[in-house]
């Protein structure tokens, strides 16, 4: 019985050592996600996101080396490579070199491969997309029309039941043109909406930028298109450079500040000069006294 106890103890120690070494030696498997973006039907890029489950929480992985290929993992099909940033993301724009491969088919496949490192195993992520485009136009009475089409047998064909956002580009994000934030295409692949954002400040000519977007679509990815329309209010720049303000340049401080500051300076230094004068008076008195 005693002997068994020792065997059990040795086994337990061995098990724990082996377990520790496994834990120390085990590397993390990253998860690689890809997303396709097509802006204005010519700026195309792939966004690679790397993350992993560490301590039961998903964390974005920075500094992961990634290579992205089109069609197959072959050096001739390399779209680009790079390293993920702090948010675990990497953007790779389509280089001219992949044009031939891109033009071959209406449906394309992208493969992202991560390099193994001390902490992480190699991982692969894939993305299938169907080539699509989005068109935007305007009609009378500030009507906006957008059409979504996909490439089928070398012909652009309208797609129905696709969610499209219609918005105006603003500094902090997109502002929807009307109450509904998004619209669904009909059988002709079309959506239409009325522009209901009157009195919106535009640029100095009153221009606003309309944008139609398909976001995170499983088949077509992310599509967007922009159109400039003169539907905003003209923005008049107020030239405040020469105005007397707290934030103005030197010599243009507000009058109240000038009066206050210079009064204080004059009074304080007036007193100081008076006292220095008194010192000279003391000196003179001393020299004149026997």
């Amino acid at each position: 019985m005693k002997k068994h106890k020792y065997i059990f103890a040795v086994l337990l120690i061995l098990f724990s050592i082996s377990n520790t070494s496994v834990a120390q030696g085990s590397k993390i498997d990253p998860i690689v996600n890809l997303a396709y973006f097509n802006n204005n039907n010519h700026d195309q890029h792939i966004l690679v996101n790397t993350k992993a489950k560490i301590n039961d929480h998903f964390q974005q992985l920075a500094g992961i080396k990634v290579a992205v290929y089109i069609t197959a993992q072959d050096p001739v099909n390399l779209v680009g490579k790079g390293e993920t940033g702090e948010e675990g993301e990497l953007i790779i724009f389509f280089p001219p070199g992949i044009k031939a491969e891109w033009m071959k088919a209406a449906k394309q496949n992208f493969i992202a491969v991560t390099e193994p490192s001390k902490e992480y195993n190699a991982a692969t992520g894939t993305l299938d997309i169907t080539k699509a485009r989005i068109k935007i136009d305007t009609a009378e009475d500030k009507k906006i029309i957008a059409v979504v089409e996909e490439l089928k047998d070398s012909v652009w064909t309208p797609i129905k039941n696709v969610d499209v956002k219609l918005a105006i580009k603003r500094l902090g994000g997109d502002l929807s043109v009307d109450e509904p934030p998004q619209y669904t295409t009909d059988s002709s692949g079309t959506i239409s909406a009325d522009f209901k954002r009157d009195s919106l400040p535009g640029d100095n000519k009153g221009n606003l930028v309309l944008v139609a977007k398909v976001e995170d679509n499983d088949i077509y990815g992310n599509l967007s298109i922009e159109k400039t329309v003169p539907w905003g209010n003209k923005f008049t720049y107020v030239y405040a450079y020469d105005k007397r303000t707290l934030f103005a340049r030197r010599g243009r401080s507000p009058l109240w500040l000038d009066i206050m500051a210079y009064s204080i300076i004059i009074i304080s230094w007036g007193v100081l000069l008076y006292l220095i004068f008194q010192l000279f008076k003391i000196k003179r008195l001393g020299k004149n006294s026997p």
Partner: peptide, 24 residues
């Protein structure tokens, strides 16, 4: 400070100056 002769006038000016300085 060789000019200080401790004359009443000097003391008066000095004290007044110190008073002004203390306030300022």
């Amino acid at each position: 400070g060789s000019f200080w002769k401790n004359t009443p006038d000097q003391i008066k000016i000095s004290e007044r100056s110190i008073g002004i300085l203390s306030i300022t």
